Simulated scan of single mutants.
Amino acid sequence: MASQSQGIQQLLQAEKRAKDKLEEAKKRKNKRLKQAKDEATADIDQYKIKRETDFRRIQTSIMGSQGNLAVKIEEQTTEKIHAYNANYQKYRERVVKEMLDLVCDIKPEIHVNYQVKG
């Protein structure tokens, strides 16, 4: 019986060692999963920063900065206003003269639909 009791004790000790090893393996696995997750998160963040930087660079090269855009629009508007004012000054006299000629040059004529009753 003593040998049987000793065998049971050895089995219990072996079971405890196996359980301890299993717990140790689970801890290592969880540690590696957490490490892999942290590395993946760092890689994702790095990739995101790179893509955002590329996007900003492309956006700036295509559209220019917002300040530049406003300045360009203001310059174009000023140029158009000056061009319109120059055209106005250039053609004003001629247009006024043509309008006065049309209004003042009256040629009385009988309308084509007028019928003499008689």
Rank of each mutant, 00 (worst) to 15 (best):
M1I: 03
Q4H: 15
Q4V: 15
S5M: 06
Q6C: 02
Q10T: 09
Q10D: 10
Q10A: 12
L11Y: 08
L12V: 07
L12Y: 01
A14M: 02
K16P: 00
R17G: 06
R17N: 08
A18G: 03
A18V: 02
A18N: 14
K19M: 07
E23C: 07
A25E: 10
K26S: 10
K29R: 08
K29T: 07
N30M: 15
L33I: 13
L33P: 00
K34M: 15
K37H: 12
K37Y: 13
D38F: 00
D38S: 06
E39Q: 11
E39W: 01
T41W: 07
T41C: 12
D43N: 02
D43G: 08
I44E: 02
Q46M: 05
Q46H: 09
Y47P: 00
Y47A: 13
I49Y: 04
K50C: 04
R51E: 09
D54F: 12
D54Q: 05
F55D: 02
R57G: 02
R57K: 08
Q59K: 14
T60W: 05
S61H: 04
M63H: 12
S65K: 12
Q66E: 08
Q66V: 09
L69K: 03
V71L: 12
K72R: 14
I73N: 14
I73S: 09
E75K: 10
T77S: 11
K80S: 07
K80T: 02
K80E: 01
I81S: 03
H82R: 01
A83D: 10
A83R: 03
N85D: 05
A86T: 06
N87M: 04
N87T: 04
Q89T: 13
Q89G: 08
Q89E: 05
K90G: 10
R92G: 00
R94Q: 03
V95E: 01
V96N: 07
V96K: 07
E98P: 03
E98D: 08
M99S: 09
L100C: 03
D101Q: 13
D101A: 13
D101E: 09
L102K: 14
C104H: 10
D105S: 15
D105Q: 14
I106R: 14
K107I: 04
P108I: 06
P108N: 06
E109H: 03
I110V: 13
V112I: 15
Y114S: 02
Q115S: 02
Q115R: 08
V116I: 06
V116P: 00
K117V: 14
